[in-house]
Amino acid sequence: MPKISKKGIKMPESPIRKLVPYAEKAIKRGIEVFHLNIGQPDIKTPDCALEAVKNNTIEVLSYTHSEGSEEYREKIANYYVNKNINVTAEDIIVTTGGSEALLFTLGSVTDFGDEIIIPEPFYANYNGFSIFSGIKIIPIISKIENNFELPPIEEFEKLITPKTKAILICNPGNPTGYLYSKQEIEKLAAIVKKHDIFLIADEVYREFVYDNAQHQSVLSGFGLENNAIIVDSVSKRYSMCGARIGCIVSKNKEVITTALKFAQARLSPPTFAQIASEAALETPQSYFDEVIVEYKDRRDTLINELSKIEGVKIAKPKGAFYCVAELPIDNADSFAKWLLEDFSSNNQTVMVAPAAGFYSTDGYGTNQVRIAYVLKKENLIRSVEILKEAIQKYNTL
């Protein structure tokens, strides 16, 4: 019988999606499942984006440019300039989601066997992307006790070898919601320039920042024109996860030229999704103002309710719409599966993402979960009530 590839065998399951079959079975049994496991916003997609597709008169759905349409890239560049990120359309390649942007980036700056350093916990798919690209993640632990702040820069220094090609951060962070300060970005900027490596920043949650804090982009005043690469996406910003449109942004011409070759190999990003994403750039600021108020309210509600459960440890998010909670249980994977297979409270249960899948170091995150606060307040309150009852019952088994 033909053999599956070694990298296919190593490819991890998504900690976010692997429990879906259990959730579907629970729903078929008549159980209401509160989905805290996935970052799918319930916020309405801007009307301007939806209308642009509905009212389009295209008669031939043809290829677009491999780097994305020039008009769209010009408008993206203007969006960044308004965020104090001085780039042009030539510094941007439109991709099929932020995932493809990261894959093209890794393909452009790493070779098989190279290494990238990532503070963990990190977005679970970074594990999969690294295996897909034939590279090795070198993790550096950030701790829930410190709210997942940047580990000491000296610890990064210890991990840099001739195989190190980049440091990768997510800012604000998924799954932690941590927002890097200006001082932290400055430290990272200094070390990547010192060692002549790249700083890749996944900035897809840029708009979601709370408590009057400011997002610090790696391409905004840190002197990283040759070293910085931004990975971005419309998915969360405009509640357009299904559009699958993202981009790579870099002032390094060699990076853009190389990434374009990968983009040409997959031909072009989807036409209608670009049309919707271009129109979404016209979304008024009032939309984001309302969204931020809503998410901050949800964050505060979730943190307040979780803090009432004895033994729960929580890191307070400064951005995005996730938090990591450490639960008084032995194993979050078993617990999350049990919640869907064997537990309900008044015919309701919750679905969480076990956090071990957001680490690459074995043994970390085994009693932690990621919770996405993308539900309305009353559903978050009910979800935590269910979680409290479930923890008590689970620990008596």
Rank of each mutant, 00 (worst) to 15 (best):
P2D: 06
S5P: 00
K6A: 04
K7P: 07
Y22I: 11
K28Y: 10
G30Y: 00
G30Q: 02
I31M: 14
E32N: 08
H35P: 11
L36S: 12
P41D: 10
K44I: 14
T45P: 02
L50P: 09
A52P: 10
N56R: 08
T57I: 10
L61G: 07
Y63W: 14
H65M: 08
E74P: 00
A77I: 06
V81Y: 05
N82C: 01
V87P: 05
V87A: 09
T88L: 01
I93S: 13
G97D: 04
S99T: 14
E100K: 09
A101C: 03
T105D: 12
G107F: 01
S108C: 09
V109C: 11
D111K: 13
I118P: 00
E120F: 03
F122K: 12
A124P: 01
N125I: 11
Y126F: 15
N127V: 02
S130A: 15
G134K: 06
G134H: 09
I135F: 08
I137Q: 03
I141W: 03
F148K: 04
I153S: 04
E154F: 03
F156A: 03
K158S: 13
I160V: 05
P162Y: 11
K163S: 01
T164K: 08
K165L: 08
G173H: 02
G173A: 06
N174R: 00
P175S: 10
S181I: 02
Q183M: 09
I185G: 04
E186N: 11
L188M: 04
A190R: 07
V192R: 12
K193C: 07
I200R: 07
V204G: 03
V204Y: 07
R206D: 14
Y210R: 05
Q214T: 13
H215L: 10
Q216V: 10
G221H: 03
N226W: 06
N226S: 15
N227D: 11
K236W: 14
M240A: 15
I245W: 08
I245Y: 02
G246H: 06
K251A: 09
N252H: 10
V255W: 06
Q264K: 14
A265S: 15
S277C: 13
T283D: 03
F288E: 04
V291T: 14
V293A: 13
T301Y: 05
L306E: 10
S307T: 10
I309Q: 09
G311N: 11
K313N: 11
A320R: 01
F321M: 13
C323E: 07
V324G: 01
A325E: 07
E326M: 07
P328L: 01
N331W: 00
L340M: 12
N347C: 06
Q348E: 07
Q348C: 06
P354Q: 02
T361V: 15
A372H: 08
L375W: 02
K376V: 11
K377A: 04
N379W: 03
E385F: 04
E389A: 10
A390C: 07
I391Y: 06
K393N: 08
K393W: 04
